[in-house]
């Protein structure tokens, strides 16, 4: 659809983009400033940019430990989602008794925000003995309903004749999934990987509740801890923020299409 005044629309969108990008600039500027970050008026461009604050982060806090915990939890979550959701998604493409009940159960589970169940979820984790462990951190994130439906839709798009042919050739169900369906569902796998990564990487409330030792804390908790300990002192906090945000931004920019498709398909398919 063509409308008039493209320059006017550009002007508005440039303004919107500037508003959206400004906080990024402000934090980046602060992270590479060594002068007193509270000087007034604040400089719009850093006088003598350097990476000192980024080095500082490694000495001020156990950054490698936080990073390792975050990576372990995210890896568990990604692996869990890719495998478990594929199996459940495949099961949902088949006919079995009580299928409608299972579908209804899944759809209604989607309406329950995880935050609404934290107290019993904490108590359950305590009974399972997984408080303060990597497994406990990852367990609620191991499977996602949205992602199950993304797999299901992708598997259903595979021609039935192909699956029948594989079955006649005597392939087991496992082999059918692994050698026929999954290679044809790469976009669905990518969406699963990205959503699971972003969600587990950013997760804050759950780790806050179930970790007790600094040893088990993930990056978001490290950030919160840093904030309460070192507030009002250095630009290192903002360097830490930049370091934590970078992986998320990179993953998002590399796989924007899959990420958006995952969110919107989950959104429109119930």
């Amino acid at each position: 659809m063509r409308r008039g005044f493209p320059w006017a629309r550009h002007a508005v969108l440039v303004l919107v983009s500037a508003v959206m990008l400004l906080p990024f600039y402000w934090v980046l500027k602060t992270a590479i400033t060594d002068e007193n970050i509270y000087a007034y008026p604040p400089r719009l461009t850093p006088l003598d940019p350097h990476l000192f604050n980024f080095v500082d982060v490694w000495y001020l806090i156990p950054f490698p430990r936080y990073l390792l915990n975050s990576v372990i939890v995210s890896a568990l979550a990604v692996a869990g989602n890719v495998v478990l959701n594929a199996l459940a998604g495949y099961a949902l493409t088949r006919h079995f008794p009580a299928k409608r009940l299972v579908l209804l159960l899944l759809l209604s589970c989607m309406l329950i925000p995880f935050q609404a169940t934290i107290i019993p979820a904490y108590l359950i984790s305590a009974r399972l003995g997984v408080l303060n462990t990597h497994l406990g951190l990852a367990l609620p994130l191991l499977s996602t309903i949205v992602c199950i439906f993304i797999y299901k839709a992708s598997f259903e798009a595979v021609p039935k004749s192909l699956i029948d042919a594989a079955r006649i050739d005597g392939l087991s169900e496992w082999r059918i999934i692994a050698t026929v369906l999954l290679p044809l569902s790469k976009p669905a796998i990518a969406t699963n990987v990205i959503l699971a990564f972003i969600w587990s990487w950013n997760s804050f409330m759950w780790p806050l509740i179930i970790t007790r030792d600094a040893e088990m804390q993930t990056l978001p908790l490290g950030l919160a801890r840093f904030l309460s300990y070192l507030e009002d002192t250095t630009g290192a906090l903002y360097a830490f923020v930049v370091m934590v945000l970078l992986p998320g931004i990179l993953v998002f920019l590399m796989a924007q299409k899959e990420f958006i498709r995952g969110l919107t398909s989950g959104a429109t398919k119930g």
Binding site: L87, L105, P120, S143
Partner: peptide, 16 residues
């Protein structure tokens, strides 16, 4: 195939 995912939703959504 369904059990692992359902177990997680049962443990962390329905029962809670």
């Amino acid at each position: 195939f369904l059990l692992p995912s359902l177990a997680i939703f049962l443990l962390y959504r329905m029962i809670p």
